[in-house]
Amino acid sequence: MANKTAANEHGGFPWKHLIGFVLSIVLTLFALWIALETDLSLTWILIIIFGFAFLQAALQLLMFMHVTENSTKTKLTGRVQVGNILFAAFIAIIIVAGSVWVMTAGHAKHDKHDEPKTENHGGHGGEEKSEEHGSHK
């Protein structure tokens, strides 16, 4: 345990794996229940199920993949592994959230109309504005 070089993983019952497995099942079923059986608002459902998804991904990384484990006595490799995965997760979130925001926040709404585009101020107001715009016609 002193230097986490996986020495502590030897022998004995694989508690870490079993706990990870049980928690993963619980999170999966709970997410399904939240999504399909509750009357929460869409926003809350999305926050909760994505929270669970990231939690379960962390469980896999920590309990099954031993991401923090070091292959040498120095603690360098564990840090590199964790840092690399966190950086990749950061990139992934930017790519997904950024793409969704750019494409759905309403900036492109005016493409529907065949008339010259008017300025669209502000990001989130896009949808209401295009409706307003339509009613003027």
Binding site: S71, I85, I91, A92, S99
Partner: peptide, 28 residues
């Protein structure tokens, strides 16, 4: 062995980015 394993962790980072682009396309 040590270097291959560390290298594979780096590769998984690239795989995360690959899947992120596909998730982004899907969600858009």
């Amino acid at each position: 062995g040590r270097l291959n394993i560390l290298g594979f962790w780096i590769f998984l980072g690239a795989e995360i980015a690959l899947f992120a682009t596909l998730f982004a396309t899907y969600m858009v």
